[in-house]
Write a protein that binds this DNA or RNA. Structure first.
Lengths: 304, 304
DNA sequence: AACGAACTATCAGTTTATCCGATTATAGTA
DNA sequence: TACTATAATCGGATAAACTGATAGTTCGTT
């Protein structure tokens, strides 16, 4: 049996991969540049293969290097999770839990969620980051977040997901448009360019929205909003209509507006909310409890 | 972020768990008893919790200790697999591969398998262990084997399985019995106590065998054989009949006997052969290629 | 062509961690 | 009581990790 590499050296490799620069990686690892340099060399020697190609000014990770980085990451996060588990005395709802969430869910759910969790598990230290799905996936991959709350479907990229519940879409219409829209809304009765949507990055791709996009292009206004709040303001100010998640409505996003809520014509108008996490995690128990708490706060729970 | 424990200390903990004795664990780890002792203490201090309860003469792992052992095992095997992968230059069919196999498969399949593998992947170092299913599962859990070849179904105990193919059961009868048995065999025409079976541990629990057990108890001889070879000898010597896997027949287990081969009456008379491995493994690519090679050698491949 | 900026590798010296052997302490056993 | 088996402890030796300074490379600028 050959000698195992040290976790420290593996972490140096990870830092180097993240920062693509010996100095910055060393700083991030709280060691000197020389330490990190020799650490990497040490690792290459122990593993008996080249991890990075040097060309004196810069360097590049080899394919093997990338693979080793992947595996090292899994090993290091497992070890961190072990330490975390031990220091929480085996209570899976203690210590830090780093959650990522998208902006069309976060503001309307996390307030209540963190309140509920704090009450139920007072020793849980919630750390929440709001960003786009893709950014959050990167943070998850890099081990900077433990679990994501996303709108499904999503490109899992090797991660695992649990569906937690559904969030129905409602149509929200300016009064003038509401009068002629019918109930549930008949898209054909709406004026051209009267439907406002979010930018694509927000992936509010519920069935209703997709159907609307495909079948009623002329009804859709070419301007897109960058947040739910501005979406609603646009709909109100320009006498239009839009789709808003039930979650946001429940959280009072329409307060102070005179918009009218109606059902979309498509009965399957909802988005699914899910938890996403690394398949190599050893915190499934924690995520399970999180999922249960989350499901109770959603309009329709469907834990699976 | 608190400091991570060293892999060495984790391995000391594993050794201690395996040997339940500081001296033997230290020997197995090639260190002195004092080193191991302080390593464990070190670990407990770093993790901030008690892993073993000492009562001056002996000790006991705490629940937390057991959990940490589990997790440490996953971390260490991942690291070993990383090293192995690197040292094989990323070629997943190089280096050691430790296979466990049950005795009703091993002698009839592994000869051909290892020959095929050696030819296709000359740098693969095959290590084969033959034992009961339960023993093999223990070796797998303890990281002493990488993958098992078993007859399904099997209690996975948290492991993962891939089904590789089917191995049909044939009936094998002494000539006198064969004459009256019909073709396919009608169990009712057989004399009482004329069917011989293996000991239960061998889990030759194909549908045919199970059906026969349930519906024709009086036909079954109360004596059980401890190997396929003795099973066949009993059937021949005592003018009886028995079930034998196609695999064993193909390998020539009936050579030199005057037994007659017939189909069992049940059309679904087969056992499934599968690969079983730890869910935390990072050698799926290796196992995949093994599965493909294996499937080609089985009477009926059904890779899934 | 010369210079400086941005890099990584190397080296000598220091600090830290690991390990061993001997010893102590405890409990069970002959 | 002496003996055996066991784990914890301690001082000193050894090996590993780390640092700061320096060397050497490349690239862009003057």
């Amino acid at each position: 049996m050959s000698k195992l590499p040290s976790l420290k050296n593996l972490s140096y490799l990870l830092a180097l991969h993240q920062h693509q620069n010996f100095n910055r990686a060393a700083q991030a690892s709280f060691v000197s540049q020389s330490t990190l340099s020799s650490g990497i060399q040490n690792l290459e020697e122990q593993l008996g293969c080249q991890l990075i190609e040097r060309d004196h000014k810069s360097f590049l990770f080899t394919a093997m290097g990338e693979e080793i980085v992947e595996r090292s990451r899994a090993i290091l996060t497992s070890t961190e999770e072990l330490v975390n588990y031990a220091q929480s005395q085996g209570n899976v709802m203690e210590g830090p839990l780093r959650i990522g969430c998208i902006p069309t869910i976060g503001p309307f759910l996390l307030g209540l969620l963190s309140k509920t969790l704090q009450q139920q598990y007072p020793k849980l230290e919630l750390l929440i980051r709001e960003d786009t799905t893709q950014q959050l996936m990167n943070f998850l991959r890099d081990g900077e977040l433990d679990v994501l709350i996303l709108a499904l479907p999503v490109d899992l990229q090797g991660n695992q997901q649990w569906i937690v519940g559904k969030d129905p879409f409602k149509m929200v219409l300016a009064p003038a448009v509401a009068e002629i829209a019918g109930d549930p809304v008949n898209y054909n009765k709406l004026p051209d360019k009267s439907i406002f949507l979010l930018e694509k990055e927000h992936c509010m791709t519920g069935h209703a929205v997709t159907a609307c996009r495909l079948g009623n292009k002329e009804k859709i206004n070419p301007f897109t909003a960058s947040s739910l709040h501005s979406l609603i303001q646009m709909a109100e100010a320009l006498n239009g209509a839009t789709f808003v998640p039930q979650l946001a409505i429940d959280a009072g996003i329409l307060a102070g507006t005179d918009l009218v809520i109606k059902d979309p014509s498509d009965g399957e108008a909802y988005r699914e909310i899910g938890l996403v996490f690394r398949p190599t995690t050893s915190r499934r128990q924690t995520f399970r409890k999180l999922a249960e708490t989350l499901a109770e706060l959603l309009p329709e729970a469907t834990l699976r």
